[in-house]
């Protein structure tokens, strides 16, 4: 067993499952929004679409999925390339800084998204 305290769910299986499920939710959201864009939208119909509570909840779900998906993906990238093995001790500093930066960006996006939806 390899320990990893900064991964999303601390378990490889749970990260893997969250990555798959969030991917499907994101795909569904983009297909849904893409389909309504294809039908042609103007400001009024776009606004009306996002006034629906169902759409707001679906979009919040998509934002949270994006947050989890991005975190798991970026965590994998960081632990592949920003490591002591590849860069020496500076790799550990860079990796932690990268992880903190990623979590801040993800946090900002979630708050910003909620503000747009309900603000």
């Amino acid at each position: 067993m390899v320990t990893a305290v900064t991964s999303f769910g601390r378990s490889g299986l749970s990260d893997w499952l969250v990555q798959r499920v969030s991917g499907v939710i994101l795909l569904a959201w983009f297909l849904c929004v893409g389909a309504s864009l294809l039908g042609g939208v103007d400001y009024a119909s776009w606004k009306a679409m996002f006034e629906h509570t169902a759409m707001k909840i679906f979009t919040l779900l998509a934002i949270l999925s994006l947050a989890a998906h991005a975190w798991i993906g970026m965590w994998s990238v960081g632990t592949d390339y920003l490591t002591q093995r590849l860069m020496g001790p500076v790799g550990n500093v860079l990796r932690l800084a990268f992880q903190i930066a990623c979590s801040l960006v993800v946090f900002v996006y979630v708050i910003w998204g909620i503000q747009i939806l309900w603000g």
């Binding site: 067993m1 390899v2 991964s7 601390r10 490889g12 632990t79």
Partner: peptide, 12 residues
Amino acid sequence: LSKLDDPFSVFR
């Protein structure tokens, strides 16, 4: 199986 359920051993 318990020893394999971390983010690296199998899931990399």
